[in-house]
Simulated scan of single mutants.
Amino acid sequence: MTLTYSEDDSTKTATIAVSGKITKEDYDAAITPMQAFTDKHGSVNFIEIVESFAGFEPSIIWPGFKFDMANLKHIGRVAVVSDIGWISPITKAAGYFMSTKLRMFDMSELEEAQA
């Protein structure tokens, strides 16, 4: 599995770690608990850790977009953690179109992102 999902009820923070190519199976295994976590807490934070990224199956684009649009108002902060150079500018550009606070961190700053 190239996508792992975990959650911390005490901080209302869900963490997604990516390593490789995201398949539809990976997405489906994470999205159901992610939606339940968001529904349970009302307002949540997310940490995305991108260790490596080899793309994703196109079949997750539309479901991912629908999840984002339905839940964006419930997401307080997002931290993207990666040392992959091209992810930072894309993350910053996406942040301009979101009401959610979005911040980029290097892998060496993982503890700061978690805080």
Rank of each mutant, 00 (worst) to 15 (best):
M1A: 11
T2A: 15
T4H: 01
Y5M: 08
D9A: 06
T11W: 05
K12W: 11
T13I: 08
T15Q: 10
I16F: 10
I16K: 04
V18N: 05
G20V: 13
G20E: 04
G20I: 04
I22F: 11
T23A: 07
T23W: 09
E25Y: 03
D28W: 03
D28T: 14
A29R: 06
A29L: 06
I31W: 11
T32I: 14
M34N: 10
M34S: 12
Q35R: 02
A36P: 01
A36D: 03
T38V: 02
D39W: 00
D39M: 00
G42Y: 08
S43Y: 08
V44I: 14
V44E: 15
N45T: 09
F46P: 04
E48A: 12
I49A: 01
V50A: 02
E51D: 05
E51N: 04
F56Y: 08
F56R: 03
P58I: 07
P58V: 00
S59C: 04
I61N: 10
I61R: 11
P63T: 00
P63H: 01
P63Q: 00
G64P: 08
F65P: 01
K66L: 14
F67A: 09
D68A: 15
D68G: 11
D68L: 15
A70M: 15
N71I: 04
K73D: 11
H74W: 02
H74V: 03
H74N: 15
H74R: 07
I75D: 08
I75K: 06
R77P: 00
R77Y: 07
V80H: 14
S82Q: 03
S82K: 05
D83K: 03
D83T: 07
W86R: 02
I87M: 09
I87D: 08
S88I: 06
S88F: 11
S88R: 15
P89G: 10
A93D: 08
A93G: 08
A94G: 04
G95W: 15
G95L: 10
G95Y: 11
F97V: 12
F97N: 06
F97G: 05
S99N: 14
T100F: 06
T100Y: 11
L102M: 12
L102D: 15
L102W: 09
M104K: 09
F105K: 08
M107A: 10
S108A: 15
S108P: 06
S108L: 07
S108C: 09
E109A: 12
E112H: 06
E112F: 10
E112W: 09
E112D: 13
A113Y: 05
A113Q: 11
A113P: 11
Q114R: 05
